[in-house]
Design a binder for these strands. Structure first.
Length: 962
RNA sequence: GGGCAGUUAGCUCAGCGGUAGAGCACCUCCCUUACAAGGAGGGGGUCGCAGGUUCGAACCCUGCACUGCCCACCA
């Protein structure tokens, strides 16, 4: 094969097997050089096709799920570019918030360090370096996959342009009153040390227990109220026990006080019994301990009964250990140890009535899988209702569609029940919240909390005291572990709090000081992701890119981030721009391992896509993914599934090799456009007809996002029709050309069809297998008459006027005859080299003519030496029947009559069953009366053919036995 | 608790109202001048279970059973 990348080509030296390793890098290079992936923001915007990549987190190398996701996008991009559209696929990566920070923390831990030890500034430096390397790896992998990403438009969720988008959005939401700060119950990940939004909590069913604990009634010794709980460690923070108001068992206790166990001599020693309709009397004992600081439901109960009970008492701290409020006996213990101790202590006091097994779902962090602790804390929140309403409207009026559409209902349902979004994260890696506090006004409320376990001394240090010690703000920020900002109510909107990206230049309007400290929290990584389709084009700047490429067309992603990401992009896009950021979302499934398990590093079942590409070629790998990519369905992936596609690549390679070997050395154009249709024979007309319907079917499948179906159509056409039949029938027409320069009319027709159909099929296959198809299409160029420099610039195949049902029907007849004769040969063990004679007995003159006209086909495909009309049954012959045609094949000396007899008996049995079935249905007047005539006619034909075959074979069988 | 998928050949999955299909695996034969990563032939399925609609059901409807996923304030 030509290694230079030029199109000069010597048909004689093409490799016998497809060598992906030498082909792929050349085209990666050529595509890059030609700028095929570069999009111009000019022209008719209706003729553009735009995708923004779901930016992979910079957490490491890409996995097979990314390979699937990006292959599908590349497939779409290539398909639309082939159709002449201005395609733009924006590449990029996501800083990845907690996930990425965790990766770095793990690396530090391996060196025996923590991020707190090295400080915020140094930590962020490390993150930047890591990110740079990671981006390079990721983009390199995508290029290796063949992805036509517009690299000039690469974006990162935390680069300068995207930061401007984030700040602008935050400010707009703030001005619109959608963003607020407040103290609420949030999901706290103790391990990651941060709050999470509701949808970042995953629920796992875990084995648990239900502890039944006796709460003594105050002043009535010996009397208890028994509550059932799954979390005894929160008992010390109970501020009431709730029962259902209509629960007759407890009516008399409502309003009375209980003695909170293990709380003797401490604040909140006595707690009231309150009545709340939300309590399910049938669960447990019907009495619920209420811990407003550590359970969202209990928090709500407190909200409803503020006058009757004490507020939240936080007994579990942000580090997951019991706080001083839990009392000396428990403070400092981990949640787990505290539980054990509390249960033991209750037991010792005979306050534990019983323990039941109780499986229940536990919320865990989606990044580290550790149980979530519901805690009350000050966080930034965003009101989502107004945005969700717009997204819902867009969905309902069809401005935004999900594929497959069974995701529509859950999507809308989620929007309808949207909750406020907790935006702030107590980590370092992310967009710093663009809010500044005047230190003089708020210093006492800006506290650097030192988790006891890390620092030894568990005292909080206020920023103002550090300032008094002469520490600079920068030092303070570096030194602080977690600065907690405790502001409430109107203070948040006072002049001493500025919402802006840069440090305020002017002094505080309230006090005149100029010491501003930025909010230490960062934004949820999904906040910048939500702006992605806007920010990649420079929004809010009115860039040329934005006006031309926004809104985009399709988003391809997995259902696991439908709410986390897709819905939020819709909401943001609709809110800021009024248009849906993309009109369609194609949902790909999750790639699992062969047993259907999710791939994960800890399970050790991850498959490295690069390894597969190295081993079997990128095209085969892509095909194996696409062929299993039915919308929304998960893919159990095993390396075995790449073998078929690998073989297919080789088949494609060799079919082109065959065609090239049979073309003249001198470049000569064989174009379907110049085809003289009067010179076509049956096989030509048949394959052209099939080719036209292939193109149509692939177009349809692509329009329906049925990529696997499209790939399957090309596969089946190329292999089962083009190679198995058409090429075989073209061989004799080309063999006669050996050594001759000038074409005959017939060889010209054959070569034209071969070059035209193969060339077009390569184009259809290109989006799935870009490398091999480019290589082969280029090698055909001296003959195809194509002038474009690259396949993608050559236009989609549009065969017209080849549809020919008659040719298809005739060809099917010939193929059936060939198959019958082949089966006969094989089953009678006729040596493959042995040519046979076939005598045919035909009732229908048209069929006879067809056979005679195409006897060369039978000769070639069934290795029939001579085909002649039968005059009776030759002795020592085998019989094959195809509809109304019977073949007798004399096989004196070769045939084993016993084998033939058995073969015929089997066939006859099959046919009589067939005839019986047909007749059964045809004799049913209800069927013939009600079924459509076409169906009845089909069945009659079936019966006729089966009966004819049956008669022919039975006849032979009787003679054989006689 | 609510919802959505899936259940078809040994394996992975198409088909979704008119004779049960593909790939891989298996058996037989063949290195026939494109391809042994190939060719020809073959075996293998009461289409999860039970009802119903229909002339006709793998396909539509209703239950049920498993499996997976999503949602939900099940102490």
């Amino acid at each position: 094969m030509a290694r230079s990348g030029s199109i000069s080509y010597n048909p004689g030296v093409i490799d016998k097997t497809y060598p992906p390793q030498s082909v792929e890098p050349r085209w990666t290079e050529a595509w890059k050089k030609a700028g095929i992936s570069r999009a111009q923001a000019v022209g008719d915007p209706r003729n553009r096709f735009v995708i923004v990549i779901p930016p992979p987190n910079v957490t490491g190398a890409l996995h097979i799920g990314h390979a699937l996701n990006n292959t599908l996008q590349d497939l779409l991009i290539r398909w639309h570019r082939l159709h002449g559209r201005e395609t733009c696929w924006v590449p990029g990566t996501d800083h990845g918030g907690i996930a990425t920070q965790n990766v770095m923390e793990k690396q530090l831990k391996a060196q025996g360090k923590t991020r707190h030890q090295i400080g915020r500034a140094e930590f962020l430096d490390l993150m930047q370096t890591w990110t740079r390397d990671c981006k390079k790896t990721i983009l390199g992998q995508l290029e290796r996959l063949g992805c036509l990403l517009d690299m000039g438009r690469e974006a990162f969720t935390m680069d300068e342009v995207r930061a401007r988008s984030v700040h602008h959005a935050f400010r707009r939401f703030w001005d619109e009153g959608l963003i607020e700060r407040g103290e609420r119950m949030v999901n706290w990940c103790v391990r990651c040390g941060t709050a999470l939004s509701d949808i970042e909590v995953e629920y796992e069913d875990r084995k648990g227990k239900l502890w039944h604990i006796r709460y003594p009634v105050a002043g009535e010794p010996g009397k208890f109220l028994v509550v059932a709980t799954t979390r005894p460690e929160t008992l010390l923070g109970d501020t009431s026990v709730a029962v259902n108001p209509s629960d007759t068992r407890y009516g008399s206790l409502i309003g009375k006080k209980l003695l909170l166990p293990l709380r003797k001599g401490m604040p909140n020693e006595q707690i009231p019994v309150v009545a709340d309709a939300h309590v399910d009397a049938s669960f447990g004992t019907g009495a619920v301990k209420v811990t407003p600081a550590h359970d969202p439901n209990d928090f709500d109960i407190w909200q409803r009964h503020k006058s009757e009970m004490a507020g939240p008492i936080s007994v579990i701290a942000f580090d997951g250990k019991m706080s001083p409020s839990a009392g000396e006996a428990y403070a400092g213990l981990s949640r787990e140890k505290a539980r054990d101790k509390i249960v033991a202590d209750l037991q010792a006091q005979e306050l534990l009535e019983k323990i039941d097994e109780h499986p229940h779902s536990v919320g865990v962090c989606y990044r580290c899988q550790q149980p979530i602790e519901p805690l009350v804390s000050q966080q930034w929140f965003m009101r989502m209702g107004p945005l969700a309403a717009k997204a819902l409207e867009a969905s309902e009026k069809g401005a935004f569609k999900l594929h497959p559409d069974n995701w529509e209902a859950p999507y809308r349902n989620w929007l309808k029940n949207i909750r406020d979004w907790c935006l702030s994260r107590q980590i370092w890696w992310g967009h710093r919240i663009p809010v500044w506090y005047c230190v003089r006004c708020h210093g006492k409320n800006l506290r650097a909390s030192m988790p006891a376990a890390q620092e030894g001394a568990g005292q909080d240090a206020s920023i103002s005291s550090w300032l008094e010690q002469g520490l600079s703000l920068r030092d303070i920020e570096t030194r602080a572990r977690q600065i907690r900002v405790e502001l409430s109510g109107s203070a948040v909107r006072s002049a001493s709090v500025r919402v802006q990206a840069e440090r305020p230049a002017k002094p505080c309007p309230d006090c005149g000081a100029s010491d501003w400290l930025q909010d230490p929290d960062v934004l949820d990584t999904w906040f910048s992701s939500a702006l992605w389709p806007l920010s990649v084009f420079g929004w809010p700047e009115k860039t040329q890119d934005f006006s031309f490429f926004y809104p985009t067309n399709v988003l391809v992603t997995g259902y696991e981030i439908l709410y986390l990401w897709v819905a939020r992009m819709q909401m943001m896009g609709l809110h800021f721009d009024g248009r849906a950021p993309f009109s369609d979302c194609v949902i790909n499934g999750i790639v699992r391992d062969k047993r259907g398990k999710k791939m994960s590093k800890s399970l050790g079942n991850v498959v490295d896509p690069l390894l597969l590409m190295d081993k079997h070629g990128t095209d085969a790998f892509r095909f194996s993914l696409v062929s299993q990519a039915h919308p929304g369905r998960d893919i159990p992936y095993s390396e075995d599934s790449i073998k078929g596609p690998r073989n297919f690549a080789n088949k494609v390679w060799n079919s082109t090799r065959f065609v090239l070997m049979n073309l003249p050395e001198k470049p000569t154009v064989y174009s379907l456009k110049d085809l003289d249709r009067s010179k076509l024979e049956l096989s030509d007309r048949w394959i052209l007809s099939e080719y036209e319907s292939l193109c149509r079917r692939v177009e349809e499948a692509m329009a329906e996002q049925e990529f696997a179906v499209a790939a399957d159509h090309v596969y089946a056409f190329l292999w089962d029709k083009f190679c198995d039949w058409y090429v075989e029938l073209a061989k004799p027409r080309l063999e006669v050309m050996a050594g001759k320069e000038e074409d005959t009319e017939d060889s010209r027709a054959a070569r034209t069809v071969l070059v035209g159909v193969l060339g077009g099929t390569l184009k259809l296959l290109h989006p799935v297998m870009p490398f091999i198809t480019e290589e082969l299409w280029q090698s055909l160029k001296p003959y195809s008459g194509e002038t474009a420099d690259l396949l993608l610039r050559s236009g989609a195949p549009k065969p017209e006027g080849f549809h020919d049902p008659e040719a298809e029907a005739r060809m099917v007849f010939i193929m059936d005859a060939v198959k019958a004769l082949r089966a006969l040969r094989s089953q009678l063990n006729v040596p493959p080299g042995l040519k046979i004679r076939a005598h045919h007995a035909v009732q229908n003159p048209a069929e006879e003519r067809l056979l005679i006209e195409h006897s060369s086909y039978l000769r070639r495909l069934a290795r029939v030496e001579e085909l002649c009309a039968a005059s009776g049954r030759p002795a020592q012959s085998a019989t094959a029947a195809v509809g109304a045609v019977t073949f007798y094949v004399p096989l004196a000396g070769v045939i084993d009559l016993e084998v033939e007899r058995k073969r015929l008996v089997k066939e006859v049995d099959r046919l009589s069953e067939e005839v019986r079935q047909c007749e059964g249905r045809l004799s049913d007047p209800v069927f013939t009366g009600r079924a459509p005539e076409s169906e009845v006619e089909k069945l009659r034909l079936r019966r006729r053919e089966a009966a004819a075959e049956h008669a022919a074979l039975t006849d032979t069988l009787t003679h054989l036995e006689a």
